[in-house]
Design a protein around this nucleic acid. Structure first.
Lengths: 111, 111
DNA sequence: GTCACTACCTTGCATTGCAAGGTAGTGGGT
DNA sequence: ACCCACTACCTTGCAATGCAAGGTAGTGAC
């Protein structure tokens, strides 16, 4: 770890911590494919790269929280469109609760 | 990763992400030693173990965000009491901003 | 002197984000 | 027919780091 980058590093850690949660949130809003997930994350100031996203999507698929369908693109190679499963929805509800508790805990530490 | 423990795992990741931040917050409130930091974290529902805390404190010390003084205990071995440095305070202010932005981003995804 | 307790710290493993590099489909220009 | 740019998918290898487990040492009670 570079001495200069402590803040950047901790920032990155915070982001990492909520990554799965954020991705589940995005996909829960409707079918979407990887590149557009990256764009959504970027819009929310949560920088993520391909090498992070693809393995993560595979993991979530492997845990049956997500599923995908291949769809043709109008221009370019076909895309994997991800959607959330019932199991995924249930998990996501739990994660929302967890997130809410965590933010409460930390906000109480800040005060 | 065990299939059963997806929620626990993601919960753990969320906790990890904010660990450094939380520890800095706790120490910024006044000098404290490792075992009491663990108790504070537990009170805030942020479970951490020794094997995590000690290396982290060393890292933060190495980055000059923290400093410590040895103090005798009334019963038992001496303790390392940690305090935050000026550099640490500045970092912590940055981290508070980062945290605030992150929660806003994620809360906007939740809606 | 031994035991219990507290407090410090280290080792080795597993997870995982990420930079970098790889494969392949589509379509436009020549 | 060929190449090139673009998009989209995925993998490899490295480095960071949380954690279980185990280790060292000071204090005081019996």
């Amino acid at each position: 770890m570079q001495e200069e980058n402590i803040i950047e590093n901790t920032k990155a850690q915070m982001r990492k911590g909520s990554l799965e949660f954020c991705i589940m949130l995005i996909i829960s809003k409707g079918e979407i494919y990887a590149s557009d997930i990256l764009k959504e994350l970027k819009k929310a100031d949560l920088i993520v790269v391909e090498g992070t996203l693809y393995p993560l999507l595979s993991r979530l698929k492997g845990s049956q929280l997500l599923q995908y369908k291949w769809k043709e693109s109008e221009s370019g190679p076909p895309r994997k469109y991800y959607t959330i499963t019932d199991k995924g929805e249930k998990n996501l509800e739990q994660l929302k609760i967890t997130w809410s508790k965590l933010t409460k805990s930390i906000n109480s530490l800040i005060k």
